Amino acid sequence: MIERDHPVLSVGAQCRLLSISRSSFYYAPKGETVMNFDLMLLADK
């Protein structure tokens, strides 16, 4: 979708064209903590 090494359009320009913020492009979700994962397993039982 967004090309980091596009020859003409910067990442910011591509984000504006797609109507998304640059921070949402760079966002990397964090995984679940071990404690939260254990609680979810316990709740499933």
Rank of each mutant, 00 (worst) to 15 (best):
S21V: 01
V8K: 14
F37W: 14
D5M: 00
D5C: 00
E3R: 04
V11G: 11
L42I: 10
P29S: 12
M1F: 08
Y26D: 06
Q14V: 14
M1K: 04
K30V: 13
S19W: 06
L9W: 15
D38Y: 08
S21P: 02
L17G: 07
G31M: 02
R16K: 09
R22E: 12
A13S: 10
D38L: 14
M35L: 11
R4M: 04
Y26L: 00
A28L: 10
M35S: 07
D5E: 02
R16G: 05
T33K: 10
S23Q: 02
D5W: 00
M40E: 07
M35V: 12
G12R: 15
S19G: 08
D38R: 09
E32T: 06
L39S: 05
F25K: 05
H6A: 01
C15T: 12
E32A: 08
A13L: 10
V8Y: 12
R22L: 06
G12M: 14
K45G: 06
V11L: 14
A28W: 11
R16H: 08
S10A: 08
K45T: 01
V11N: 13
L17W: 07
R22H: 08
D5R: 00
F25C: 07
Y27Q: 07
L9R: 14
V34T: 13
E32I: 06
L18P: 02
S19C: 03
V34W: 11
S10E: 01
F37V: 15
M35I: 09
E3P: 01
P29W: 09
E3S: 03
R4I: 03
D38S: 10
L39Y: 01
E32D: 05
G31N: 08
L17S: 10
M1Y: 06
I20N: 03
A28I: 15
I2C: 00
F25A: 09
L39R: 02
Y26H: 04
Y27A: 14
F37H: 14
R16A: 12
V11M: 15
A28P: 01
D38T: 10
A28K: 15
M35E: 06
V11C: 13
L17R: 12
S10F: 06
K45A: 05
R22N: 07
G12Q: 15
G12D: 15
S24D: 04
P29I: 13
I20V: 12
V11T: 14
A13V: 10
I20T: 07
A43Y: 05
Y26K: 02
N36V: 12
V34I: 14
R4N: 02
M1W: 04
Y27E: 05
L18N: 05
L41S: 03
E32V: 09
C15N: 10
E32M: 11
E32R: 04
G31P: 02
I2T: 03
G31L: 08
S10N: 03
L41A: 10
P7H: 11
L18D: 00
G12T: 15
S23R: 00
H6F: 01
S21C: 00
C15D: 09
G31W: 04
K45I: 06
L9H: 15
L41E: 06
T33I: 13
F25G: 04
A28E: 12
N36M: 13
C15A: 14
I2K: 00
M1I: 08
L18T: 03
I2Y: 02
